[in-house]
C-alpha cells in the first residue's frame, strides 16, 4: 500500500518535472498549444472538484475565468504582477461566496439554470459598468510575461489543483462529499455540515478557475467582455470533465487532453461547423459514456474478466 503510494507520487513528480523542462525542447507553436491545454486541464479539474461529487452541474466556469481575465486587464497597470494574481483570486473568491451563499441552497436544477446565465449576467454588468461609469469598453494588457512564463504558471496551477483533488479524495472531506452526492438527508443526520462544505468547495474551485483566467489573459493583449466571458469555455470544461469521468481523480485530465486537441483541430479545419460538431460530441458522450471513459474502460475490463472466468468455473 505505502509502496504503491510512493510509486504514484514519484510518477506524478516525474511528469511534472518533464513538463517543466518542455519549453527548452519545443517551439513556440507547441507552447501555445500547451498553454491552451493546461488551461483546460486546470479548469476541468477545478470543475470536477466541486461538481463531480456534489452532482451540481455548474455552468459558471466562464464567469470566474472571465472575472480573472478582466481583473487582470483592469489592474495590469496599477499592480505588480504576483499581487495582480492575488487580487484577481480574491475577487473570484468574493463573487463565489456571494453566488454560493445565494444558490447552493437551491435544488440542483435551479442551480444549473442560475449558473447557466451567471456568465451572461456578469458580462452584462461589466459592460454596463464600463460603458456608463468608466466610459471604456475593451482594455489592453501589457505585462512582461513570456509565453513560457504563462506555461509554467499554468503547469503549477494544474499540479496544485490535481494535488488538492488527490488530498480531498483521501480525506474526510472527500467522504463527506461522496455522502452529500448520494443522499443529503443521511449526510445531515451523520453530522455533516452540508452547506459549509459545499460553499467551501465551490469557492475553492472558483478561485482556481479565476486564476486560470488571470494567468492566461496576457496572451490576448486586448480584452473586452465578450472575449473574456465566452460561454463556450463553460461548455468545453463541462464536457471534458464528463468525458473523462468527473468522479475520478484522473478523469478531468483524461477528458481535457483529447478533447482539447480535437477541438483545436476542428476549429482550424471546420470553423463554421464547429458548434454542430461540439453538440454532437456532447450528445454522444451523454448517450454512450454517461459515467466517463475511465468508468467505461473499467467496466469493460471487469466484464471481460468475469466472462473469461465463467467457463473455468463451469469446468470445475
Amino acid at each position: 500500500m505505502t509502496s504503491r503510494l510512493l510509486c504514484q507520487i514519484t510518477g506524478f513528480l516525474t511528469i511534472i518535472i518533464a513538463l517543466t523542462a518542455l519549453p527548452f525542447f519545443v517551439g513556440p507553436y507547441t507552447i501555445t498549444l500547451m498553454i491552451g491545454m493546461l488551461g483546460y486541464v486546470a479548469l476541468a479539474i477545478a470543475w470536477a472538484m466541486f461538481s463531480g461529487p456534489t452532482r451540481y452541474v455548474s455552468l459558471a466556469t466562464v464567469a470566474f475565468f472571465g472575472i480573472g481575465a478582466y481583473a487582470c486587464a483592469v489592474f495590469n497597470e496599477s499592480l505588480p504582477y504576483p499581487l495582480l494574481l492575488l487580487v484577481a483570486g480574491l475577487i473570484g473568491l468574493a463573487v463565489a461566496l456571494v453566488v454560493g451563499l445565494a444558490t447552493l441552497r437551491l435544488a440542483g436544477v435551479y442551480f444549473v439554470i442560475f449558473t447557466f446565465g451567471l456568465a451572461e449576467l456578469v458580462r452584462q454588468l461589466v459592460t454596463w459598468f464600463e460603458v456608463n461609469i468608466t466610459g471604456t469598453l475593451g482594455r489592453y494588457i501589457f505585462l512582461p510575461v513570456t509565453p513560457e512564463g504563462i506555461y509554467w504558471q499554468l503547469l503549477a496551477l494544474s499540479a496544485f489543483a490535481f494535488a488538492i483533488s488527490w488530498l480531498i479524495g483521501r480525506s474526510r472531506l472527500g467522504l463527506a462529499l461522496k455522502v452529500i452526492g448520494e443522499d443529503e438527508v443521511v449526510a445531515a443526520h451523520c453530522g455533516i455540515a452540508i452547506a459549509r462544505i459545499k460553499l467551501a468547495l465551490f469557492a475553492l474551485s472558483a478561485v482556481i478557475m479565476t486564476l486560470v483566467g488571470a494567468i492566461q489573459a496576457p496572451r490576448w493583449t486586448y480584452v473586452e467582455p465578450s472575449i473574456a466571458f465566452n460561454p463556450t469555455i463553460s461548455f468545453l470544461t463541462l464536457i471534458m470533465a464528463l468525458l473523462g469521468g468527473a468522479n475520478r481523480l484522473m478523469g478531468p485530465i483524461m477528458g481535457a487532453v483529447p478533447l482539447f486537441l480535437l477541438f483545436e483541430w476542428l476549429s482550424a479545419n471546420f470553423p463554421n461547423h464547429y458548434s454542430i460538431i461540439l453538440g454532437l460530441v456532447f450528445i454522444t458522450i451523454v448517450f454512450v459514456l454517461p459515467n466517463g471513459v475511465l468508468d467505461f474502460v473499467e467496466k469493460g475490463l471487469t466484464h471481460r474478466i468475469t466472462a473469461a472466468a465463467k467457463p473455468a468455473e463451469v469446468q470445475k
Binding site: 436544477v109 464547429y274 458548434s275 454542430i276 453538440g279 454532437l280 456532447f282 454522444t284
Partner: peptide, 18 residues
C-alpha cells in the same frame, strides 16, 4: 434531470450551429 440537461445542451449547439 442531469442527463436531459446535458443531452439538450448538446442539441442546443447542434441547432445553433445549423
Amino acid at each position: 434531470e442531469i442527463d436531459s440537461i446535458l443531452a439538450t445542451f448538446g442539441l442546443l449547439f447542434v441547432i445553433q450551429g445549423l
